[in-house]
C-alpha cells in the first residue's frame, strides 16, 4: 500500500458554505497529515461550489479536489458514492475522513464496502501510531458505556467518520497557499436510483441547538409537554436553546428535532443545564462535549451528577421556578 498517500477529507456544504464539520475535519486531518508527513486534501462535491476551495485552503487543506456537477446539488447516495469512488481511485489517499452527519453516516459505509476497505463510524479521537503509522480510531460503543480503538491494517484508504465537535478547526489563515484540482464527475444520471421529491424543514424557532452557547435540556422526569414550557421560560431568560432526551421526543412532548444524544443532535455549549435528566450513556453521547454541565435532579444517585460540575438535588418542580427567577434577577431582567 506504499502507493496510498495523503489524508483526504470529504467536505460538506450547507447553504453554500463549508459546514462546521468540514472545518473541524480539516483541523483534525491537518494533525494526522503532519504526523505522517503527508498532504491534506479536501473533496468538494456539489453544484457551483468551486469558490469554496480558497476557504478550504485557509482552513488547512494543501489541495482541493472540486467535482462540480448539477447532478450533485443534493446529496444522494448513488451519485455521491460513485463520485467518491472515482476520486479515491484516482488520488489513492492513505486516510479518508467524513463527518458523522446525515450525509456521512449514509455515504461512508457504502463507499467503504465498494472500495473493499473498512470504516469506523462516529469516532471521537484519531491519532497516528508512532510505530506502525496506522491511524488509531477511537469510538464510543455500547451507547457510550465503553470505548473501542480500531485500526485498519491491510486495506486502504483507512476510513473514519468523526463526531461533530470532536475536533477543533484551525484559525482561518487566508495567506495559506494550496492547489485546486478539478475532477470530472463522470456521472451517468441513470445510475441515480433515488429521487428527492421534497425537503421539509422542521427547525424550531429560535437558536439552533448545535450552535447554542447555552442549552437547557429536559428529560423523562419532566413528565409532560406542559412542563417543557417552564424550561422555555428559563431558556428565554438565558438566551438558550431547548433540548430534550429521547423519552420526551418519543412521547411527543417535544418535536424529535430537539433530541440531544447518540441518535439525535450533538451539542457542545459553554453551559448545559440538564433538568430531570438521568444521564444515560446514550444521552451523554450528545452533550459530553459541553464545557459546564449543571444538573437538577431529585435522585442524588443519578448518573448525570457524575458528569456535572454543579448540581442541585431536588424536585425540578420546586427548583426550576426559583432558579429561573433568581437568574432573571441576576441578569437584571
Amino acid at each position: 500500500m506504499a502507493e496510498n498517500k495523503g489524508v483526504m477529507v470529504c467536505g460538506e456544504i450547507i447553504e453554500g458554505k463549508l459546514s462546521s464539520i468540514t472545518t473541524e475535519l480539516l483541523g483534525g486531518g491537518r494533525g494526522l497529515a503532519d504526523a505522517l508527513g503527508e498532504e491534506l486534501s479536501l473533496v468538494l462535491m456539489g453544484s457551483g461550489v468551486g469558490h469554496l476551495a480558497s476557504e478550504a485552503i485557509a482552513f488547512g487543506a494543501d489541495k482541493v479536489f472540486v467535482v462540480d456537477d448539477p447532478l450533485l446539488k443534493d446529496y444522494q447516495t448513488d451519485s455521491y458514492v460513485a463520485v467518491m469512488e472515482k476520486v479515491v481511485k484516482q488520488v489513492s489517499p492513505n486516510i479518508l475522513l467524513l463527518g458523522q452527519t446525515a450525509m456521512g453516516r449514509d455515504l461512508a459505509p457504502r463507499l467503504a464496502f465498494r472500495l473493499d476497505t473498512a470504516v469506523s463510524m462516529d469516532c471521537v479521537e484519531l491519532s497516528i501510531d508512532p510505530e506502525s503509522k496506522l491511524m488509531l480510531q477511537t469510538r464510543p460503543v455500547y451507547g457510550g458505556n465503553a470505548r473501542a480503538i480500531y485500526a485498519c491494517e491491510e486495506t486502504r484508504p483507512q476510513m473514519a467518520t468523526v463526531r461533530s465537535k470532536a475536533m477543533d478547526p484551525l484559525e482561518r489563515d487566508d495567506s495559506r497557499k494550496g492547489e485546486v484540482v478539478s475532477i470530472e464527475s463522470g456521472l451517468d444520471p441513470s445510475l441515480i436510483r433515488t429521487k428527492v421529491v421534497e425537503k421539509v424543514k422542521e427547525e424550531v424557532a429560535g437558536i439552533k441547538l448545535e450552535d447554542a452557547e447555552v442549552v437547557v435540556t429536559g428529560g423523562r422526569g419532566m413528565g409532560s409537554a406542559e412542563a417543557f414550557q417552564e424550561l422555555e421560560a428559563l431558556a428565554k431568560v438565558l438566551g438558550a436553546a431547548v433540548g430534550a432526551t429521547r423519552p420526551p421526543c418519543d412521547n411527543g412532548w417535544v418535536p424529535s428535532s430537539l433530541q440531544v444524544g447518540l441518535t439525535g443532535k450533538i451539542v457542545g455549549p459553554t453551559l448545559y443545564i440538564a433538568v430531570a435528566v438521568s444521564g444515560s450513556s446514550q444521552h451523554m453521547a450528545g452533550c459530553s462535549g459541553s464545557k459546564n454541565i449543571i444538573a437538577i435532579n431529585k435522585d442524588a444517585e443519578a448518573n448525570i451528577f457524575k458528569e456535572a460540575r454543579f448540581g442541585v438535588v431536588g424536585d425540578y418542580k420546586k427548583v426550576l421556578p426559583a432558579f429561573t427567577a433568581k437568574v432573571k434577577e441576576l441578569l437584571g431582567g
Binding site: F305, K306, R309
Partner: peptide, 18 residues
C-alpha cells in the same frame, strides 16, 4: 477488514459540587 485493538471503560471524574 478492521481490527479491534483495545476495549475499555472511560474513566469519569466525579467532581460535581452539590
Amino acid at each position: 477488514r478492521i481490527k479491534l485493538l483495545k476495549l475499555f471503560i472511560p474513566v469519569r471524574e466525579a467532581k460535581c459540587e452539590i
